[in-house]
Design a protein around this nucleic acid. Structure first.
Lengths: 226, 226
DNA sequence: AATTTATTTAATCATTTGATTAAAATTTTT
DNA sequence: AAAAATTTTAATCAAATGATTAAATAAATT
């Protein structure tokens, strides 16, 4: 709620520290806490995460966590912000590349996304879950929407619809299908691994296959001619 | 953990009650609690749900909740079980209908699923989230996997692969794509509504469109000829 | 109607958990 | 080395929360 106010304060804090050339916050301890927090928050969600568990995982005292980050919520907001930014950052470049075709973007996007989610398979469920309860759409509204709607990628989609390359449907169907086919397998991996009798390695192999398959499928189902 | 043991005890309990023709548990109050619990658990998840909130929503006392269901965890397990069973039940009939074609099943499945999720949009994220933490794959292993693998639907998929109607890929890709395209929009609805500037009504309209579109897409991307 | 059984409540417990405080240890600056 | 600033810890607090108990009320049975 007081998220932006907090960020301003943190930035001011860090900035002033730098100005006064007083000893900067030891990055090693702060990072240790943040890393532990990221892992546990991402795996268990906000409500199920205990600050004591974070402290223990970081190898520090509980009081230290509050010394550095003031509260559980503020630590969470920070982690959440960084996760989202990393998320957006990772695709922003691809979406706005004006020298790649729509087909090409889909290929690169799929490949990058699958590689990223293979390394951080808990990330999407975490983001999707927390987004529901916390009305932090601020972040979302101010970043994600703008980034996507004004992206060259979106212009290309609308162009393709105009020229009849894509059927005249709501562009959101496009986003839903791509994201659904890429992200859902990771979100539903416990079920999918179970019904397919797959261990982690076999699951990853399937995901690697999808780097090739999904762009083909998207093309077959949505792009006319070619 | 002691989930099955508990179920047995509950069943035994109810059974014996019936035998002795002692007054059965008042269904109205028990149902009130279960309904409130289902809504709140589904919306906020296990960890973020307070038993007091359930009691209040049900219009009863906190002690009464524990009187009927013994503990938060046991109430949760019951809700979870019922949700999963309803989930499986709702598709089991479709999957095992031997008089419908593969294409037909996909149409019906898509339509049913979208109607169901339109009424219970929080269900998939709830199930997917809780499945990750709680290793209650027992339930999953003993039901979902068997139900799906032995279904006539699965036989039809394998048949279609043999006759070359579907490219020779892992059948799981099929499941991932259908589920991804149907379920993901509901899981990601906060983001999607935001970037598409959709209110609930407009979102539902898009989902209605997908009842027609998804079967077509699946056919175009995975089913050769026809 | 009397008695037994089932249902419901108010009050309370015990544990968990986020957060604070005051002091100790460490590092930095003078 | 002394002083000042910082990092870290042990101990503790206060609120939240799941659960229980004993008593009151209502319903069913005899």
């Amino acid at each position: 709620m007081y998220f932006y106010l907090y960020l301003c304060l943190v930035n001011l804090f860090i900035f002033m520290k730098g100005m006064e050339s007083k000893p900067a916050i030891d990055p090693s301890t702060e990072e240790k806490i943040k890393n532990a927090a990221r892992i546990i928050f991402t795996r268990k969600g906000y409500a199920a995460t205990r600050t004591r568990d974070i402290a223990q995982a970081a190898g520090i005292n509980l009081a230290l966590l509050n010394y550095y980050f003031r509260s559980k919520e503020k630590l969470f907001d920070l982690i959440m912000m960084e996760s989202m930014q990393e998320f957006i950052q990772s695709i922003s470049g691809v979406l706005n590349n004006e020298s790649t075709s729509l087909e090409n973007k889909i290929q690169i996007l799929t490949s990058n996304y699958i590689d990223m989610l293979t390394l951080q398979p808990d990330l999407p469920l975490f983001v999707l879950s927390e987004l529901r309860s916390h009305p932090q759409d601020l972040m979302l509204k101010l970043n994600f929407k703008e980034k996507l709607m004004r992206s060259y990628f979106f212009i290309q989609i609308q162009e393709a619809i105009k020229t009849g390359k894509i059927a005249p449907i709501h562009p959101l169907h496009f986003v839903m299908n791509i994201m659904g086919m890429i992200i859902f397998p990771f979100v539903g991996s416990p079920i999918l691994k179970n019904i397919g009798d797959l261990d982690q390695e076999a699951f990853n192999e399937i995901m690697q296959q999808r780097k090739i398959l999904i762009p083909k499928w998207i093309q077959a189902m949505m792009l006319k001619g070619n």
